[in-house]
Every structure is written in C-alpha cells, then in structure tokens.
C-alpha cells in the first residue's frame, strides 16, 4: 500500500462527497424531516422528566441533547439501512469492481467516508443547530472533548460501514438482500441506543446491547458528547469502537472473499 493508493482513497472520498452534494433540495427536505422527528422525540422523552429528575444518570438537558445528536447521526451512519453494495452484487456490476486495482470494499469505504462527511455537515448539523436554539443542550466544555467526539463519530461511521457491508454481502448468496437489510436496520435501531438510550434499557437488555458493536455507532459518541464518559473512559470508549471497526471490517473482507469465489456473472 503506497501513497498512490491513499491518493486514490482521497479521490474516491471526494467523489462520495460530491455525489450527495449534487442534490441540495433533497438535503433541505431531509433536514426538515429529521428536525420534525427530533421535536417529537424530544417531547416524548421530556415527558419522562415530569415525574423524575434523573433517569439512569440522564437529566432533561442530557436527554434532549441525546435526541438531537441521534437525529444528526441518522444519515451520517445510515441508521435506516443501505443497499448500494448489494445492488452492485445483484446487477453484476461488482465484476467490474473486481478487475480494478483496489479492493471493492476499500473503494466503497473511501466513497462512504466522503459521503458521511457531507451528511454529517449538511444533514447532521442543521437539525442539531435547531435543537440547540430551541432547547438547552449540554455542550462539551473542553476542546479535547470535542476532538474526542469527532474521532468517535469517525469511528462510528467505519463501524457502521463494516456492519452495512456484511448485510450487503449476503447478496452473493440470495437475490433478495432486502430482508437482511431490514433485519440489520432493526438491530442497529434498537441496540445502538438510537430509539431510546441504552442506559434506559432494563439491565439484561443493556448488557445484551453492550455485547454487540451497535452502541459503537450511536450511543458511544453521544456518551462522549454529553460527558457520560470522561477522562480515561473516553480513551476506553474510543478503543472499544476501534476494536469493533477492525473486527467488522475483517469479517466483511472474509465474507466478501467467500462470496466472490461462488460469483457467476453472465454476459460478455
């Protein structure tokens, strides 16, 4: 792996960014929807604090901050699913990717990182800003916490990519990848802590969630932002995310290799 490959990754990431920057009206519409849902989710969880001051260490401000960060992560890590790779496998386009000098998963990861940057800025920040204007959010005081949060979101994107790649690679074995995608999205929505914070779960469900890579996609970056993880815990959190990122990428790569071995593409 030389500088040339890194240069190529960079170019692919820029294409990923540009691909999504080309549709500003779609972005505005999406921001509108994410914002409306953000308000609904915020009011629902705030209703819990009419009866209690704290739930599992969250106060009202931390909970509202959690909601708006979650809304900002929806597109950034594609919480509701992604099927681009599966569609390339199904159509046979993957054959074209295979003869290129970069591993298809690496190329698609680079593209996805560029896409995620666009979505983080243009789909993530606007709802977060609206939330910050209307509600009192908890903001990190220390620049280092901001830095740790940005790194954590970056790792969350890679972890989510690894998992998305795995349920897309299923398309090598079945022409119907949508079922796998839906089931994958269900797992992400629940166990990542996106729909309700993992800390609100009953103990057994929280323990189950923490044994999976899913909190690394949503809950862990949020924990850093709202200060649930501090000091050395922040490094521990980032380490957990890094481990899951590597594990999922390796599994995806192995599965992909198996899939390619049984790939038959028609046509000349």
């Amino acid at each position: 792996m030389g500088l040339d490959t890194l240069r190529l990754d960079w170019e692919l990431a820029r294409r990923g960014y540009a691909r999504y920057a080309a549709y500003p009206a779609a972005t505005i519409a999406g921001v509108f929807v994410n914002t409306v849902f953000g308000f609904m989710r915020a009011f629902i969880l705030l209703a819990l604090f009419e009866q209690r001051d704290h739930i599992a260490g969250y106060d009202a401000s931390a909970t509202v901050t959690y909601v708006w960060l979650g809304q900002a992560l929806i597109m950034t890590i594609y919480i509701f699913g992604w099927q681009d790779l599966a569609l390339r496998i199904r159509s046979g386009d993957i054959a074209g990717d295979l003869i290129r000098p970069v591993h298809p998963l690496r190329a698609s990861l680079a593209f996805d990182l560029g896409r995620a940057l666009y979505h983080a800025i243009y789909r993530g920040l606007p709802p977060l800003l609206v939330g910050a204007l209307v509600f009192r959010l908890v903001l990190p005081a220390d620049p280092l916490e901001w830095l740790a949060f940005v790194i954590s979101v970056g790792l969350a994107i890679v972890v989510s990519y690894g998992f998305r790649a795995i349920y897309n690679i299923v398309a090598f074995w079945t022409t119907d990848h949508r079922g796998a995608m839906f089931l994958g999205a269900v797992a992400v929505n629940l166990f990542s802590g996106f729909i309700v914070p993992v800390a609100f779960f009953p103990d057994w469900l929280a323990a189950l969630a923490h044994a999976t890579p899913f909190p690394s996609m949503v809950q862990l970056p949020i924990d850093i932002f709202i200060g649930r993880a501090t000091g050395g815990e922040v490094l521990g959190t980032l380490a957990v995310q890094l481990v899951w990122a590597v594990v999922l990428l390796v599994i995806a790569e192995r599965l992909f290799a198996f899939g390619v071995r049984r790939l038959v593409v028609q046509g000349g």
Partner: peptide, 12 residues
Amino acid sequence: AILVIFSNVPQL
C-alpha cells in the same frame, strides 16, 4: 421504545 420508556416511569 414505548415499553422501555415505561420501564422507567409508571405513566406518560
């Protein structure tokens, strides 16, 4: 989500 919410409070 509703069940998890109600595992923390008796009513909403």
